[in-house]
Measured scan of single mutants.
Amino acid sequence: MAAGGDHGSPDSYRSPLASRYASPEMCFVFSDRYKFRTWRQLWLWLAEAEQTLGLPITDEQIQEMKSNLENIDFKMAAEEEKRLRHDVMAHVHTFGHCCPKAAGIIHLGATSCYVGDNTDLIILRNALDLLLPKLARVISRLADFAKERASLPTLGFTHFQPAQLTTVGKRCCLWIQDLCMDLQNLKRVRDDLRFRGVKGTTGTQASFLQLFEGDDHKVEQLDKMVTEKAGFKRAFIITGQTYTRKVDIEVLSVLASLGASVHKICTDIRLLANLKEMEEPFEKQQIGSSAMPYKRNPMRSERCCSLARHLMTLVMDPLQTASVQWFERTLDDSANRRICLAEAFLTADTILNTLQNISEGLVVYPKVIERRIRQELPFMATENIIMAMVKAGGSRQDCHEKIRVLSQQAASVVKQEGGDNDLIERIQVDAYFSPIHSQLDHLLDPSSFTGRASQQVQRFLEEEVYPLLKPYESVMKVKAELCL
């Protein structure tokens, strides 16, 4: 049975990233139509530049190519590739079939990587351009969430054990800070992308030097003109047959890092959902379990974690691919890159769409948070109580021993009897502590235990987050809708 299948058929496997999760716009960027249309555009740009620099290419040939950029006979191309065992030459023939007058000058002087690699770089750039505003929107939604809850005390956790208090907004800023680093890295790697350009079979530009009869300047002009037509500021000066596969490492490393950030955020949300302090959106008709109707599973956060793990592992592909590119190139890269580049971007696209949807509907339960604080705060307040007693004339050592005994009794009630923490009640009825009984409410005010959390939130948002989001103001209103 021949390899390949009808990918629109229910009898043929289709990647869930495309069929179930990723956005239509990201799927289109990695589609065959987008790819092969870009090949034709690159052939047109090459012909236009070659004509401008004096090669015998007519206006009629150029116009014929322009008129057929979208006229792609995919069936013919597939048949040609089956016959020739070469995808680029299959599309040269297919393009030439609908451009008979231009057929002889299509791909003039070029090698397969002229269309293959340059198209990949265009796709990487455009895919990054799709991700950047999506990530900015996630940051914006979380920034709104953090600002609104900047002063809401909550129990902090280290080692997932109760620690000092923080605020809900401050905790959210930990998430935002990681995503801001990801946004900066995505922008950097996007701006650092260079075009492969017009380089020939081993990167020496020998074929173009021959076409222009040894004119170095025209060869350099050709490279520059096509690079500018493709919208790049610069091209690699040095290439082998391909652009260095280190570029793929750079791009997928940034995406993998984004995956790590999203995994951490969504894990926190899942843990908070278990504590009943916070939940992701839950639709009115949504079913959490087929057997347990009360369940409210954090399905979206779980999906993000599941896909983020996949995204983090994909960076190993370009690392290994770059390491086995012998001399000017081997074909070890080809099949692998067809999979890992598309999957990385479709996965990143999915987790950003999902995280935006989550961040637009996060639900906080202040009463649950308050109750958990009441359970733990008495123990945390013991040092403040000791200091207040010393100020009232008591002995630190005597007070410490009193607190120690009462704390152990209260802990026994919590752990052995399943009761509430009654340390404060014990202190309130103990005559030894009568000098500070009137101060206990103040000493137990949760806001006095959150330090500068709310001020940190305000400063972080104003100095770091809002300036970073400013270039994306025009796209901030787009909502994230999930079908599944």
Rank of each mutant, 00 (worst) to 15 (best):
M181E: 12
L255G: 08
L258F: 08
R190S: 13
R33A: 03
D73G: 11
V251Q: 01
V198C: 14
P153L: 02
C266H: 09
Q285L: 05
E148T: 07
R14V: 14
A2C: 13
L252S: 09
N421G: 05
S334R: 03
T166R: 02
T94H: 08
G8M: 12
L355A: 07
L272S: 10
F195L: 12
E370I: 14
F212A: 07
K415W: 02
L468R: 11
G259F: 00
A411M: 06
Y243F: 14
E401S: 09
R190E: 09
D422G: 11
T354D: 08
E48V: 08
G259W: 01
L311T: 04
R396W: 02
M278K: 01
E417I: 07
H7P: 14
K479R: 14
D144M: 09
G169M: 01
G109I: 00
C266Q: 14
S306G: 09
R371G: 02
G169F: 00
R459C: 11
F157E: 04
M278D: 03
V363A: 05
Q416H: 09
S434K: 12
Q375K: 08
G156M: 02
Q356R: 12
G288W: 01
E64G: 05
Q241E: 13
L331T: 00
L84R: 08
I249L: 13
S23R: 13
V364A: 04
Q397M: 13
F30R: 04
M387T: 11
E25Q: 09
I351S: 07
K75N: 04
V413H: 13
A411V: 10
D317E: 04
R404A: 12
W175M: 02
D178K: 02
R171A: 03
V168D: 02
Q356F: 00
V115T: 07
V413Y: 08
T119C: 13
R190K: 09
D349S: 09
K170M: 10
Q409G: 10
D191A: 11
P378R: 00
G169W: 02
A90L: 01
M380K: 08
S140Y: 15
E343Y: 03
L275Y: 02
A322V: 12
I386N: 12
L314T: 14
D178T: 09
I373K: 07
H217P: 06
G451T: 04
P467R: 06
Y34Q: 01
Q285V: 12
Y466T: 15
S438G: 10
F195H: 03
D398L: 11
L319D: 00
F327M: 03
L272E: 13
Y472G: 14
K246A: 02
L44G: 04
P471R: 14
A273Y: 01
P378N: 00
H7S: 14
R452S: 13
D422T: 05
H159Y: 00
T267F: 15
S407F: 01
L484Y: 11
E464A: 11
V168Y: 09
S290E: 00
L443R: 05
T166L: 11
S334L: 04
G393D: 10
M181N: 09
F379S: 04
D420P: 09
R194I: 05
L108D: 00
I427S: 04
H310Q: 01
G169T: 06
F282N: 15
Q458R: 13
K402L: 10
H437F: 14
Q455E: 14
S454Y: 08
R171M: 03
R452K: 07
H7Y: 13
I436D: 04
R188P: 00
E370M: 08
V262M: 10
L179V: 13
S395E: 08
E417A: 11
S448M: 09
R85T: 08
P16G: 08
N118Y: 05
G5W: 08
V247T: 14
E148H: 10
H107V: 02
R303Q: 12
S207C: 14
N71V: 11
S412E: 13
I249M: 13
H400W: 02
E70Q: 05
M316C: 10
T313R: 05
R171T: 00
E417Y: 13
M312Y: 05
V226I: 04
G214F: 15
S448K: 11
C99Y: 07
E64F: 15
R14S: 15
P281R: 07
K477L: 13
A344S: 04
L314Y: 14
V457R: 02
A411N: 13
L461E: 06
D117G: 06
I237A: 07
P56M: 08
F208G: 07
R188Q: 11
Q439R: 09
A273P: 04
A163W: 01
P467F: 03
I287K: 01
G394N: 13
D191M: 11
P293I: 08
R196W: 05
L252N: 11
I238H: 15
A256T: 06
R33V: 11
D420K: 02
R270I: 09
C340G: 09
Y34A: 12
F160S: 11
H91T: 05
D11L: 06
V254G: 13
A2L: 13
Q285N: 12
I385T: 12
A335R: 01
A344V: 00
L440S: 00
D268H: 13
T94R: 07
K229E: 03
L272Q: 06
T227I: 06
E50Y: 05
D120N: 13
F433D: 08
R33S: 06
L258R: 03
M278C: 11
D420Q: 12
Q41E: 11
N71M: 05
A47Q: 12
D191R: 11
S412Y: 11
Q61I: 09
I436H: 03
F212L: 12
G451M: 00
T38R: 03
C340S: 08
D441S: 02
Q397H: 06
Q428H: 12
D216Q: 09
I369Q: 05
G393S: 05
K470D: 11
G393N: 01
I427C: 10
Q285T: 12
N353C: 12
G288D: 01
I105Q: 09
E464S: 10
Q164H: 10
L211M: 10
P471K: 14
E277S: 04
I385R: 02
M225P: 00
E213C: 10
Q241L: 01
N357I: 12
T244L: 06
L255Q: 11
P16A: 10
V405L: 10
S407A: 15
E370W: 10
I105E: 12
L341H: 11
L484C: 14
E81K: 01
I403E: 05
K82S: 09
L84F: 06
L142V: 09
D349M: 07
H107C: 13
A335E: 01
D87S: 09
T313Q: 09
L108Q: 04
S447V: 14
F433S: 04
A47S: 08
L311M: 11
I351T: 14
C305L: 03
L121K: 04
V254K: 08
L307M: 13
A110L: 03
A77G: 06
S31E: 05
V405A: 12
S334H: 14
P471F: 14
A392W: 15
M476C: 11
G451D: 03
L165A: 05
T38Q: 10
Q397I: 07
M389K: 04
Q397L: 06
Y13M: 15
M76S: 10
V115Q: 07
A291N: 03
T239G: 06
V262H: 04
A150T: 15
Q63L: 08
V405C: 07
L307G: 10
Q325Y: 01
M299A: 13
I57Q: 00
V315A: 04
E250K: 10
R245F: 00
D349R: 04
